[in-house]
């Protein structure tokens, strides 16, 4: 019973963090929410995978957050000042869209559970919320940082669901590499253009 309650708490945490990532434009807050989101995803993953394999996903996620955070910190203050931190119209639009997606996901969850028994309502709901939030974020994002956040959120949702149907160590490892790769790609793309062309060697 306690496990069930904790799992539902993880789903609520996913909802809250997804909404925060979608609505705000402050990268510090977004990365903080992503950190918590990975913790909630970790909890749902460990419903089907051993604790150690779930921990690998949690650590990978937090490493990605660290990579993105360090990169953002390293970028010039000028670049940050130019970036929009608050988009009033976009903010409400995205929140309303997320509410619609969350409602649709909540409606689909029991149907999926009846079609694929054993996955668990919380796992399905958490996964669908993450995938939906990720897709909205991808659709609404116009900058690289938010695009990467959208991809990471979507992949986290997929991982939660896939952990319930595939427990291979190789998949866990490859997904961890894919997540890290996404974080590193994001860091690279964020940095690209901020380095001056100095010599033929850098070509």
């Amino acid at each position: 019973m306690t496990l069930e309650i904790l799992s539902w708490a993880a789903v609520v945490l996913i909802l809250a963090t997804s909404a925060v990532i979608l609505a705000n434009r402050d990268w510090r807050l977004s990365l903080g929410a992503l950190t918590l989101q990975y913790f909630a995803a970790f909890w749902l993953i460990t419903r089907h995978l051993p604790f150690v394999m779930g921990s690998a996903k949690l650590i990978t996620g937090w490493m990605v957050v660290a990579i993105l955070g360090m990169t953002k910190l390293g970028l010039s203050a000028e670049a940050e000042e130019n970036a929009p931190t608050f988009l009033p119209r976009g903010q409400w639009f995205r929140l309303i869209l997320f509410a619609a997606v969350a409602l649709a996901a909540a409606g689909a969850t029991p149907r999926i559970e009846s079609g694929l028994p054993g996955l668990g309502l919380q796992v399905i709901a958490g996964s669908l919320f993450l995938i939906g939030a990720g897709m909205i974020h991808l659709g609404a994002a116009s900058d690289i940082f938010n695009t990467i956040l959208g991809l990471l959120t979507m992949i986290a949702g997929f991982e939660v669901l896939y952990a319930a149907i595939e427990s291979s160590l190789l998949v866990t490892g490859l997904l961890a590499v894919a997540n890290l790769g996404l974080g590193l790609s994001g860091a690279y793309l964020l940095t690209a253009g901020t380095v001056a062309l100095e010599s033929e060697e850098t070509l």
């Binding site: 998949v171 490859l174 997904l175 690279y188 793309l189 940095t191 062309l197």
Partner: peptide, 19 residues
């Protein structure tokens, strides 16, 4: 998964650091 990782590896080729 391997194709996805390969695509990510290709990104530094597509986007030079100065661009």
């Amino acid at each position: 998964l391997l194709m996805n990782i390969a695509a990510m590896l290709a990104l530094p080729l597509l986007v030079p650091l100065y661009q």
